[in-house]
Design a protein around this nucleic acid. Structure first.
Lengths: 158, 158
DNA sequence: ATAACTGCAAAACATTTGCATACAG
DNA sequence: CTGTATGCAAATGTTTTGCAGTTAT
């Protein structure tokens, strides 16, 4: 769940260089947001991330959270997901396997999976439609069989 | 694009019976919304649907549009999609092949495709994770090669 | 008749924007 | 210093809700 320190450092370095290249500032808020998202390893929405930061004594505004998430997406350190709710969820993407998502309709739990056939499908579709495909999102929705799957959608953050 | 009259009738009948079963009323607004969505065959968002109705001289409120869409989803006549934008899009689902979506990042055009391998993946995932999978959403995003793909996201409705 | 539905406007959310202040380079 | 970021609060866009009036059954 937690990334090795060496990789966390690499992530910070990458963000720092991205900012430098674009002539943007390296602020403590930006790194705090990066750290919070990478520390969790979960699929947090912007507000849960905001709440977690506040809980950890980091005071940032929601606007800065959204701003920074956009920057992190631009430098490929974070991916944004629309799992069917109106609010987006964000997930770290550095040094992590490419995967798709399996969501429990009852408890809201999110599982990750990877199947090589999705890649084949992507190639076939690109060929047939003359598309240059940049990315895909495959979400499966169903009922999990966990003991503690209790039909109560648990909030993203404790 | 347009469904044969016989199927449109079947759709209306199905909705009528669904409403009767639940002791809900058959109002002209509800059928107007059903018709408008089935007439288009597109992936409309709630507001585009609202606009189309108004253009056709049907006066309904946005609230009724949303309400009715929920009913149509419940009786499996309509499916709701989250294609990455905040606003949801709605598509008729009766007498239509099961398919996934290919979206052009530049012009916003939506294409449909179907690949049997997605079904295999679904079965594999269900098996591995002990899930009873109810549905899936596979969206591919890329650049189309159409002549009139002009980078300008065209609005859902003309 | 009467319970359900509609339209309207206000509320509820998620996200973005504008602007005065703060601060990294 | 200087321009970029931040926080705040207001604005935006989408969807939901409350309620008085309307209508299908």
């Amino acid at each position: 769940m937690t990334l090795p320190q060496a990789q966390l450092d690499e992530v910070r370095t990458r963000f720092a260089e991205f900012l430098k290249t674009r002539g943007q500032r390296q602020t403590s808020e930006r790194f705090a947001i990066l750290d919070a998202l990478y520390a969790s390893g979960e699929h947090l929405d912007a507000d849960a991330l905001f709440a977690r930061l506040k809980k950890n004594g980091v005071s940032v505004s929601r606007a800065t959270v959204y701003n920074t998430l956009d920057l992190l997406i631009e430098c490929d350190l974070v991916v944004k997901h629309q799992f069917g709710k109106t609010q987006a969820r964000y997930e770290r993407s550095f040094a992590y396997w490419q995967h798709d998502h399996l969501l429990c309709i009852d408890c809201g739990e999110i599982f990750e999976f990877c199947d090589p056939r999705i890649q084949s499908i992507q190639e076939t579709v690109a060929e047939i439609y003359g598309f240059e495909i940049a990315q895909h999102a495959l979400n499966m929705y169903g009922h999990c069989r966990r003991e503690n799957c209790d039909n109560k959608p648990q909030t993203a953050e404790a």
